[in-house]
Every structure is written in structure tokens, then in C-alpha cells.
Design a protein around this nucleic acid. Structure first.
Length: 520
RNA sequence: GCUCCCUUCGUCUAUCGGUUAGGACACCAGAUUUUCAAUUUGGUAAGACGGGUUCGACUCCCGUAGGGAGCGCCA
């Protein structure tokens, strides 16, 4: 991409219109925000829908805050989400010479000028504007001053010479026609005094050079677009189509932030959401296709259009995400689920269990719930990786055997793992309060009777074991629950678990009998 | 403060001047059930407010209120 960055025309689509090129342009100052993930998703969906290209640009011009590890993390998150990009990511900082060259063109054509206003002078102007309750609009005296009168030894910024009268119109595919009077738009700085290009300028040059036809980004960039439009006009470049999508808010309606429990895509992975579920949820947040709620990525690609994106901000609803996630967990085949589970457990390593649990209004953290449960059952296991190792010790075939009965009740991967804890529990099992209550004198007698019957069973299949218990209950005039619940308590240490006979089958004859005998 | 944007059940949304205002999540109740889920049946629940325009407004216009975003030599 970058080697032919001066090309202005994008390839033509078969029908003669320009082929669509979208881009996602994160700045690597942190991990991928969930709102950014949605922006990326919309760009990706639109590109795939139209058969166009989805490009990536790393906006790393802030040398202080940009970090290579953030680039890696962002790319990993996009990959995890299944959003593949075309070509190599473009690094904005590497293109500073090109940006300066365009600035020089603008200067030569008289569309930009050198401004010798100092930061102090600007601060004073802003303070005055605030005091007089006016909008802060810089009117540089250098716009029309004689360059010869420039102060010696002062490095100027370069400002765009923008129209003083009239208006700049953004024809937005989501927001509609947004009109901003030019008098409210001051002459933006395109080159800092150190020669570094500014964001609003670099974006235009890059979008143009990359052949971007459709800019889909958050509404927080709407006013930037007016400024960027002025750059396009000054260079006589054709404008891309703009679509400014509403932001994602937390449950309280404020912009999504740390206080809402999670905002990084990596955190959602640790919480055990499947990429397919997150994709489905995110797509449905602000966009709709009739009454469709659950749809495959292929369907989303087939249906997606920026015209169907709403204008109002949407609140993030963890309950709905969890419901969707449960759906996708049930849909996923065991081997694939195992892959996701492994990755998820590894991600729980660094999490501090002590944090976050205080706020009642905070969204549920299945990962933390898992760790708390683990702390009571196996205090020796401290991290998700420890648990993973313990599970692997129990045997992959056992894990696989345990999954089918668990996946239909789990709404997240950590929940799935929580349901597996009976596998790694060690004798003597620590029964929780509810489980202890289930084991009374009657229960002990029943367990003793059943242990004898089980021991005599030629097979250890769930159906056979169930037959034994059903017959026993019937003969003794007991409800099945009266017998099955104590078994559950003895086998898992909990009053809630997957079906007991599945549990017994997964544990195997020796371990199951031993746990039962422990409670006689 | 200034500029711009938004407003249908608790939440995400459908509706594109004529509907008993639909769906999904959540919630409540019933069925099913060895627990929890899953499944299934049913239920509660909405056009912010006030004016217009119109035979007729959730839908178009104006105002009010509430909410959001932007106002850097950050991105």
C-alpha cells in the first residue's frame, strides 16, 4: 500500500463506481477499546459487504504515548474478533515527510501560511474568550501579515488559510447534512513548530493517499470532519463519504469508561465472551436489520449498510451479551470450545481478584466469580493457568466428556470452567453450606445403599447409573430428587451441578465411589 | 460558555402519515425437571413534554426539558 501512496484513483468496481475502501485507524496509546472494536467491525462489515477493502492505519504520531506493545495488542484483538484487514498496516509517523510535502504545496499555493503566535499568546487568547463567554476561535495576525516581519529565532507553525465566510457542509451518511459556519472554524494548525504534522492534517493526507472512499468513525470526530473537509478542498482532492456512528455508552448513559467494569476488548476475552457473540452483539448495537437478533457473520456482511445505523447513542447491556454468548457457547463444537476455553483461562492469569467486586451496579464478572469459587475448592490454584494445568492433569478426554452437559447451561467460558471444578476438586471435598444440608442421616443411608449397587454395576455409563438410582428410589418410595441431590452434594461439593449421572460417568468408577464413601 | 447532535417498553431496537405500536434481552408467573440451566406457554412494560401542520401523527415543523459529543502546536 505505502509504496504507491501517491495514487489518487482507487480501482474501479465492475459497475464503474469506485470500489469501496474503508479503514480503521487506532492510535496505539492503549488496548483496543470496545467502542473502537465496534467502529472497526462496522468498517469491516461495510468493506466486506461491498467487496471492497478494509485497511488499517496506526496513528502513532503521538511519540510520547504510542507504544509498540499497544500496536501488538490491538492487532491481536482485531484478529481475535475475526476482523481481517487487507495489506499491511500503515504507520502514520513514517509518513511525516509526505505530510510535510503536502504542507509545502499548500504553502506554495498560498493556501497555508506561517504563524508566529506563541503558545503563551494562544493561551491568553483562550483565556480572554472564556472570560468573555465567547467561542475560542484563533484569528492569527500572521494570516495577512508580511512574512518579512517575522520575528527572528521563532519557529512558526503552519496554518491552513480557511474561508472566513460561508459554511462548511458535511454530508454525513448517518448524521445527515451537518452545517458548520466557517467563522466558527479557525485556521487549523497543520504543521507544529517542530515540523510534525497534526492529526487532522495527517489523517486527510493518509486517507487520500490510501484511496479511502468511506470514512466510518465515531461521532466524536464530526467537527474534525469539517476541518478535514477544508484540507480536502484546499488540495482539491475529492471527498470520501463520511459516516459518523454514535458512541457506545455504559449502563448509566455516560461514555463507556473504566467505572463500567470493562472497556478493553482483551477484558471481554478474559470474561469469556466468544468472538462470534461479541461480533453479533456489537453489530446489533446501533445497527439493525429488521427484527433480526441472532445472525451469522456471513448474514451480517450480506445485510450491513451504514444507512441502517441509527443516530442515537446505545447503552452497553451485559445481560444481552451474556444471553447471546450462551447461545454461541451452545452452538460451538467441543474441540473449538476447548480452544476458546484454554485461551480464556490463560487470560485470567493477571487479573486481581480483589478489585471490582465492591460495586453492586457493576456488570457481572464471570472470570472473577470463577476465581472466587476456585479459591474455596482449590486454594492452591491461584491463576487461570494453574486451573488449566489441573484440568489437563485430569485428562483432556474427561474435559471433553464434561463439556456437553455444561455448555448448555453456561453463559460464559469461566462459567463453563466453574462447572468443571468438580473434576479438579480433591478429596476430602469441601462441601459448601447448601451441600452439607443435603447430607442428612437419610441421605447417608441412601448413599451407602447406592454405593453397594453401583459397585455391582457391570458398566459405568450414565444411563445405567441413572437406571440404578431410579429403581432404588421407586422401590423405597422416594422422589428421585431426594436421592439425586445428596449424590450431587457428595460428588461435587455443591447443590448445583451438571446432571449427577453425567458427573459420575465423567469422574469414573473409582473416583466417584471414593467420593461417595467419604460421605457415608 | 459556545457549536453540533440525540430522545419508542428498564436496555437494544422495528415502524419510514393510517398498526390492538412489533421483536429481542431483562423481569414476573405457569409447564417441564434429579439441582441449575436449557426449552416452552403466558404476562408486566414505551412514543420526554408543550404547541402547531394534517381528515389523520411515534413518524413532518417549532419550542421546552433531559442526555451526548466537540471546542489543543492530543489523537
Amino acid at each position: 500500500m505505502s509504496d504507491k501512496s501517491n495514487s489518487t484513483a482507487s480501482p474501479s468496481a465492475p459497475d464503474g463506481t469506485r470500489a469501496v475502501v474503508t479503514r480503521f485507524a487506532p492510535s496505539p496509546t492503549g488496548t483496543l477499546h470496545i467502542g473502537g472494536a465496534r467502529t472497526a467491525l462496522f468498517n469491516w462489515l461495510y468493506a466486506r459487504h461491498t467487496g471492497g477493502k478494509f485497511l488499517l492505519r496506526i496513528e502513532d504520531t503521538d511519540r510520547e504515548r504510542s507504544k509498540p506493545e499497544h500496536v501488538t495488542a490491538i492487532l491481536q484483538s482485531l484478529t481475535w474478533l475475526g476482523l481481517d484487514w487487507d495489506g499491511e498496516p500503515l504507520y502514520q509517523f513514517a509518513r511525516a515527510d509526505r505530510h510535510r510535502a503536502v504542507a509545502a504545496e499548500l504553502l506554495a499555493a498560498g493556501n497555508a501560511y506561517k504563524c508566529y503566535l506563541s503558545p503563551d499568546e494562544l493561551a491568553a487568547m483562550r483565556a480572554r474568550a472564556e472570560a468573555e463567554k465567547r467561542a475560542y476561535v484563533v484569528e492569527s495576525p500572521w494570516r495577512d501579515a508580511d512574512p518579512a516581519s517575522a520575528p527572528a529565532g521563532v519557529k512558526p507553525t503552519v496554518r491552513l488559510r480557511t474561508p472566513r465566510v460561508g459554511e462548511t457542509v458535511v454530508a454525513d451518511q448517518v448524521q445527515g447534512r451537518v452545517v458548520i459556519p466557517n467563522k466558527d472554524l479557525d485556521d487549523m494548525i497543520i504543521l507544529r513548530s517542530d515540523g510534525a504534522p497534526t492529526y487532522n492534517f495527517a489523517v486527510v493526507v493518509d486517507d487520500h493517499d490510501m484511496g479511502v472512499t468511506n470514512v466510518i468513525r465515531g461521532v466524536d470526530h464530526l467537527t474534525n470532519t469539517a476541518r478535514q473537509t477544508q484540507v480536502y478542498n484546499a488540495m482539491q482532492w475529492s471527498l470520501p463519504a463520511f459516516a459518523h456512528i454514535p458512541l457506545v455508552h455504559g449502563a448509566d448513559g455516560a461514555k463507556l469508561s473504566k467505572r463500567h467494569g470493562a472497556q478493553g476488548t482483551d477484558e471481554f476475552r478474559a470474561m469469556g465472551y466468544l468472538p462470534a457473540a461479541l461480533r453479533n452483539y456489537l453489530a446489533r448495537l446501533g445497527w439493525s436489520h429488521g427484527d433480526e437478533e441472532i445472525f451469522s457473520t456471513e448474514q451480517a456482511v450480506a445485510w450491513f449498510d451504514v444507512a441502517d445505523v441509527g443516530k442515537s447513542p446505545a447503552r452497553f447491556d451485559f445481560a444481552k451479551l451474556a444471553d447471546l454468548n450462551g447461545h454461541y457457547i451452545r452452538q460451538t463444537a467441543v474441540p473449538e470450545l476447548l480452544v476458546h476455553l484454554t485461551a480464556c483461562l490463560k487470560g485470567i492469569d493477571a487479573l486481581d481478584i480483589g478489585v471490582i467486586t465492591a460495586d453492586k451496579k457493576a456488570p457481572p464478572r464471570p472470570d472473577l466469580a470463577l476465581m472466587q469459587e476456585l479459591a474455596t475448592l482449590r486454594p492452591d490454584l491461584k491463576t487461570g493457568s494453574d486451573l488449566l494445568a489441573a484440568l489437563q492433569l485430569a485428562g483432556t478426554d474427561r474435559i471433553s466428556a464434561a463439556i456437553p452437559s455444561l455448555q448448555e447451561r453456561a453463559r460464559s467460558l469461566p462459567e463453563l470452567a466453574t462447572g468443571m471444578l468438580y473434576l479438579v476438586a480433591q478429596r476430602l471435598l469441601q462441601l459448601d453450606e447448601k451441600a452439607q444440608k443435603l447430607i442428612d442421616a437419610d441421605a447417608r443411608r441412601a448413599i451407602a445403599d447406592l454405593v453397594a449397587l453401583f459397585a455391582a454395576s457391570p458398566t459405568w455409563e450414565a444411563s445405567a447409573l441413572e437406571g440404578i438410582v431410579r429403581t432404588y428410589a421407586e422401590v423405597n418410595g422416594l422422589k428421585l430428587g431426594k436421592v439425586a441431590q445428596p449424590l450431587r452434594a457428595a460428588l461435587t461439593g455443591r447443590a448445583v451441578s451438571p446432571p449427577v449421572f453425567d458427573v459420575m460417568a465423567v469422574l469414573g468408577r473409582d473416583e466417584a465411589l471414593a467420593r461417595l464413601k467419604d460421605q457415608m
